[in-house]
Design a protein around this nucleic acid. Sequence first.
DNA 1: CATACACATAAGCATAGACTTATTAGTCGG
DNA 2: CCGACTAATAAGTCTATGCTTATGTGTATG
Lengths: 99, 99
Amino acid sequence: MFRALADPSRRAIFESLTRGESDVQTLTSRFDISQPAVSQHLAALKSAGLVNGRRDGRRVYYRVEPRGMKPLIDWITYYRAFWTEHVGRLEKLLEKMDE
Amino acid sequence: MFRALADPSRRAIFESLTRGESDVQTLTSRFDISQPAVSQHLAALKSAGLVNGRRDGRRVYYRVEPRGMKPLIDWITYYRAFWTEHVGRLEKLLEKMDE
DNA sequence: CATACACATAAGCATAGACTTATTAGTCGG
DNA sequence: CCGACTAATAAGTCTATGCTTATGTGTATG
């Protein structure tokens, strides 16, 4: 989970996918790494449940798996009790972020 | 940030600190790694802005830096737009987590 | 001040992991 | 089928990193 998002390249790919699904070829063109490297990152993200891929002809389109974020949200929520005492309710913090 | 929380041992130390501040000695006793290893993890967490330490006599007490979570919250908030469309407002998700 | 104590830093090692260049596995068009 | 095309896997390399033991730094105490 954290591990999957720890690598900058992999996180960049993930972030790229949040802006819409795309195939491996397109992703490869967006970053300065080889196609196999992209595929390996996608495999790692998929294994972490953060993305999933669907094959359409020759191409495989990847998109973010929204439920994949649940562990991260869970983690924050679980430890929320702590910062709740110090910086106020997480929700309030999130509201602030909206500004 | 993600990198700092990616390592299981380091995350365990961090989570331990969310339950209250403690000195290096106590932390070392809680985990099956050497004191230097703990110090190195603490240095990494500190460098990521997740904890801070205060010296009291011979001991150094570490505690979670609440504001250190901001980048993570920011990150989620920034990409919130995406899962908002798919799984509803993050706040709703968080409410659900309360159950 | 000499010793013990608590922690940090240094140095070295061994594994993990992020790339690369082949190569293999599917899928389509002629 | 065959060749081109797209993606996944294999194999190898090189760096990052998490650990260890050894040593250094700072602080209290007799």
